[in-house]
Design a binder for these strands. Structure first.
Lengths: 161, 161
DNA sequence: AGTGAAACGACCGTAGA
DNA sequence: TCTACGGTCGTTTCACT
């Protein structure tokens, strides 16, 4: 038995995602409104076949086509990642944090923080209220705030590099 | 002069984003391929007007319509946030980190970490190599790895709550 | 799972208020 | 910046492979 876990062939070998579906996903990562006909021409499939595959990817929750916005340009100039240390049921605590509207990203982690949460606020005052709110959730022991100074990269092309 | 900064009216008051454009963005956050005609019916505008506004939002970098995928279902089962402590030029270091393909999110922060970077990998072995690679970048003093255990929330509706 | 064809609906450019 | 309209192209359904 090897000491390191090695890739089992190519990624997504067990899913029903072949190279053609990946090519379709890539097309839609460039432009989510690109026509099925144009995608078909690019990947060598008929328009109907592309549509069927896209439908399947959407139904399976593998892909979604959405608008993503720049918070800064919409007046939400304060973003931060909160590192949370908690006790007891991490799923319960993280779900309470996730239920807060200003939280757009929340997950349970292994490391010196138990939960990470990304928050979007209009200003420092709102951010402070939000941090206070999270610190008051039962089970939360401490929070640390990492204010965003400069966004360097933000990509959505997971899994098709 | 007040001690706390208060909201200057509503968010995005200074941008050219009115309530109608926000409504259009909301529609496209639900479904990035919804037809302009259907959106027009929902927000009370003609198809052409919707199209013009969407074009403007895209050209201004305020919104983009893209496919987002679930890394897990595409065979990328290891995700982590890396907290990086660095010295010297944080922009230079963060850009080097951002240039790594497996890094999908990278930013400079104020706090006990100088840089946060989210990475997507196929397995633990790849993640280890990646952490090593980042630690070898000149100016990087230390890294801390927060392995993702359970994603609780992931939203893209910034600025339209 | 894939193709092809016909009816329908969406998109795009242009003109005009 | 919006509406109105006509030409073009994309999408949908269905029968077939």
């Amino acid at each position: 038995m090897p000491l390191t876990s090695q890739p089992a062939g190519s990624p997504a070998a067990n899913s029903g995602i072949d190279a053609v579906s990946k090519a379709i996903i890539e097309q839609l990562q460039e432009d989510g409104r690109r026509s099925y006909a144009a995608i078909g021409k690019a990947v060598g499939l008929s328009e109907a076949a592309v549509r069927q595959r896209v439908q399947k990817l959407m139904d399976g929750g593998i892909m979604q086509i959405v608008a993503v916005t720049d918070p800064m340009q919409l007046g939400f100039s304060r973003q931060a990642m909160l590192g949370v240390k908690a006790e007891a049921d991490l799923l319960a605590v993280s779900d309470e944090i996730a239920a807060i509207p200003q939280v757009d990203y929340c997950l349970v982690t292994a490391g010196s923080f138990d939960i990470l949460a990304e928050v979007v606020c209009e200003n420092d005052h709102d951010l402070m209220l939000l941090v206070n709110q999270i610190r008051s959730i039962p089970g939360v022991r401490s929070t640390e705030t990492f204010m965003y100074l400069s966004l360097r990269k933000q990509e959505y092309n997971w899994g098709t590099r």
